[in-house]
């Protein structure tokens, strides 16, 4: 059983070059911020390190941070430019019964995050869901399809983004009918 600060120190000592930062200012949950291109290496380390053994990924959630600039496009709809999309990883170790939260943030215009599908199989469907609803691209994911929305849903349209506009038509049918 280790507390987040200890875990952070272990990661920091093993990966000195990544962009890491421990955020404990938020109430309730401390976060470790990780570079999106390094997340798979860090995850593998977290899973395999003898004193950590994070063998289970409890949850993986994509989040639209909506921290960009709100502007109006040509149709008068409000869209968000800039800012980030984030992925939160909640890890848990069955052996030591300790937990940690990782967070990666990727730029909104090109949200690319390394996949952790080959480290925890749980991530497979969760990453598909994050891709489907938020539009985060997981690099090296073997099967990145939509999962909850129809497969023929308009490309690049991800409903959980804060600036999502309802489509007027779906397959020639007016929505809402």
């Amino acid at each position: 059983m280790k507390n987040p600060a200890e875990i952070y120190d272990i990661i920091k000592s093993n990966f000195p070059d990544g962009i890491f930062e421990l955020n404990t200012s938020l109430p309730v949950e401390p976060l470790i911020q990780v570079n999106p291109m390094k997340i798979h290496v860090v995850s593998e380390f977290l899973r395999d390190a003898e004193e950590l053994k994070f063998d289970s990924l409890m949850n993986l959630s994509g989040v639209d941070d909506a921290n960009g600039e709100r502007i109006s496009d040509e149709n008068g709809n409000e869209i968000i430019k800039g800012g980030t999309l984030s992925v939160y990883y909640h890890l848990h170790s069955f052996r030591f019964n300790h937990k940690i939260t990782l967070k990666v943030s990727a730029p909104r215009e090109n949200p690319e995050v390394e996949s952790v599908e080959n480290i925890w199989k749980t991530a497979d469907w969760h990453e598909r869901e994050a891709f489907d609803l938020i539009g985060i691209k997981f690099i090296n994911h073997p099967d990145l399809r939509r999962i909850l929305m129809p497969y023929d849903w308009e490309d690049g349209s991800h409903p959980l983004r804060k600036d999502y506009q309802n489509p007027e038509f779906y397959q020639g049918m007016k929505v809402p009918y």
Binding site: L26, P27, V28, E29, M58, Y88
Partner: peptide
């Protein structure tokens, strides 16, 4: 609630 995140199971 105050600004923050929580994961509860």
């Amino acid at each position: 609630p105050p600004v923050g995140t929580i994961y509860t199971r």
